[in-house]
Amino acid sequence: MAAPEPEAPTTARSRAKDHSPWNWLLFIPIVVPLIPAFFNADSPRLFGFPRFYWLQLAWILLGVGTTTLVYQMTKKRGDR
């Protein structure tokens, strides 16, 4: 990714761009749901669901939680 242009248009407000260490967290919900070793088994069952199904549905919460956290932590504050 290119560095910010030195002579950016004067109208461009100085802002946090998209660089934030919090963004690295986004890798967790990308990598974890793609590892079959975690979920490819029948036991333990939860409400009758084999682990394969309830755990993969639970990854949805992981995804929502992570994206929400990253959004909250990288949100621009006080300039709108």
């Binding site: 749901p33 993969q56 549905l57 994206t67």
Partner: peptide, 24 residues
């Protein structure tokens, strides 16, 4: 059976994957 459940991880990983890309 299970092979058809790929739609779930597919639609989980997509959002963190494009979170920053789509904003750009």
């Amino acid at each position: 059976g299970a092979a058809g459940f790929f739609a779930v991880p597919y639609t989980i990983v997509i959002y963190p994957l494009v979170f920053l890309v789509l904003c750009r």
